[in-house]
Design a protein around this nucleic acid. Structure first.
Lengths: 342, 342
DNA sequence: CATTAGCACTCGAGCTAGTTGAGTGCTAAT
DNA sequence: ATTAGCACTCAACTAGCTCGAGTGCTAATG
């Protein structure tokens, strides 16, 4: 992006801020009234024309003011946005909103989403930690019906997953107990990824495995862990989004709801944000989120359970407000996860 | 409700059907054109005026046709609606939509919701079986951190619940295994309700319990099972509802989304339907579902795991189409649950 | 030479008035 | 009891109008 001189930057910033506050096109007159540049509307208009030329602004029609384009928002976020830190008071307040004692993982995640959306007035997202990257604590098998087993595994962080697998032969519960005991000894403390590695190796040696029980144990755990459990996503506060003027038309509402319903788009974005560090901002058609932005951050604990959380709002959302909330919440959640795994 | 003579019934039925098909007010002219009553529009108008008098019809304004009121729909459903049975072909088709092999309970429920909404073009609801009324199969404890335990319990039907409890003293994993072994022997096959009964009795005898381990076992399982896990509800196909003309205005959309988001209203209704047998129809402000109807049915297996499923649509939905789908689906799901528990 | 005052122009929003047509209720004739 | 006929109603649509916020351009200004 070409450099902007200071005046242009100031004016762009003013336009973006006014637009964030009002959701209406901003005119040259309004700028000079609301901000103390010592400039006449005409001069502002010249600058605005330049900014439009550069693709940072556009006007919905000739006789309306300007609104920032996606590119304009991008520039604002990259170069002009100043993220204020939360004051200690705000931090304290936020901390006290989150009371997770005695909650299981799923409930915590849901609660975090609720609070995020409550604070931001937009939609809150929480993607639960992926099992793959977290440390393994325990595995149990339950016989359901002939040849069908329910396998339950628990992570260090208290995340519980379960899955139905079929075994070629029927195995009784006593044998299953032995198998799970054996596996729990062998696999304790490894991450699922490491477990998979180990499984691969063991299965190669399978031929040499004289012990029938072990053989069965390995093949069962392979079946249990082989394909990834799909990501789970909690979406909260959809209806808050619908209050925003940009989603006031039926068509836009429908599109928004559809996007949220399929969850796929959101999961993809949060997945992307997982690999990055700190707060990430995705804008509009950056991906199929027309008119929206996503502010996200990942969280993790020492043992590596990672998930992501964030807020989806209109592109015009109050970044300086929401970014620190998301950031701090991610840190809080990380700390809670650590406590859980202690 | 006062009795209607045959002509009135016929005309009411015609109006309701036409309205279901078109979502527009129905005029006297349209009736005589579309149906072979040997009557002039004027006569039909007289009847319509009577029906309006009785509160079965109303007109949005003087120069529009009539639309059925809630009471009108109620009358239609109670007295006029003929539920056709599904043809064998349709049953077969439906049966083949549902492929649940190797799925765990949660996934099955979600899939059922998807298919219900796909077939009906409205929103599908599935409330997962309540644990309380289902038979107990296995319990496991996992030590999370000092004094905090994750308890996992599995029903006969493969439903997995987990919960975090705190124990007053720290217990190591070996001891936990003994405890769960003991409990699994003692509680096997009972429903949660029966387990609670038993717990109450055992706790009364607690004083006499010389065995420290058993004492601990009972107090742990009491903590684990004492309060009800909240109902879980899957809602699918919200966006399909938004296609319906009655939800075309932003306000109505917002209200609908809010209702679906809180889930409480829907859960209450499905709860009510659980106690009844067969298909139930709830109309409009019967409860806070303005403009909507809910068609629901419960499902259960021999061992008694019960849940409920249904379809929410506009009050004007095609009952003769949707009712048999819901009915048959509930039967199918019941059968699947039986198979699971086999 | 950057800035600005002035001015003609554009275009959506909102208002009013007129038209159309589907539908009604009432009355009198069959 | 039924129905033809008719006057009446009212939402939906259309066309024309004004209003005003905002623009771009030009010429004057410090």
């Amino acid at each position: 992006m070409a450099e902007l001189n200071e005046r242009s930057q100031n004016i762009l910033e003013a336009i973006v801020k006014d637009y964030i506050a009002s959701a209406e096109p901003v005119g040259s007159r309004a700028i000079t009234r609301r901000h103390q540049f010592n400039l006449s509307p005409a001069s502002v208009r010249n600058v605005m024309a330049d900014l439009e030329e550069m693709g940072l602004l556009c006007s919905p029609h000739t006789s309306a003011g300007r609104i920032p384009t996606e590119k304009g928002f991008q520039y604002y976020i990259d170069s002009l946005l100043q993220i204020r830190d939360l004051s200690d008071k705000e931090k304290k307040q936020l901390r006290s909103s989150y009371r997770f004692s005695g909650m299981k993982m799923e409930d915590i995640m849901q609660e975090v989403g609720r609070i995020l959306s409550g604070l931001s007035k937009y939609a809150g997202l929480v993607m639960v930690p992926k099992f793959a990257s977290t440390a393994f604590r325990q595995i149990e098998f339950v016989r359901l019906s002939h040849g069908r087993l329910l396998v339950i595994y628990v992570s260090e962080t208290g995340l519980v997953q379960n899955k139905v697998i079929s075994a070629d032969t029927d195995i009784d519960q006593r044998q299953l107990e032995k198998i799970s005991n054996y596996l729990n000894r062998e696999l304790n403390g490894l991450t699922i990824l490491q477990v998979r590695e180990k499984l691969k190796k063991e299965m190669q040696d399978e031929m040499s495995l004289y012990d029938q029980l072990r053989k069965k144990a390995w093949s069962l755990s392979l079946a249990a862990l082989q394909d990834e459990i799909e990501d789970q996503l909690y979406v909260t506060g959809t209806s808050l989004m619908l209050e925003q003027p940009e989603f006031s038309s039926p068509d836009q509402m429908r599109r928004l709801i559809q996007t949220f319903e399929s969850k796929k788009i959101l999961i993809d974005l949060l997945d992307r944000s997982q690999s990055a560090q700190g707060v990430q901002i995705f804008i509009g058609s950056d991906v199929d989120l027309k008119g929206c932005s996503l502010i996200s951050a990942n969280f993790s604990n020492r043992k590596g359970a990672i998930g992501a959380l964030g807020v989806v709002g209109p592109m015009r959302m109050d970044y300086s407000q929401v970014v620190p909330i998301v950031d701090f919440t991610a840190q809080l959640v990380s700390r809670v996860l650590d406590r859980e795994a202690e």
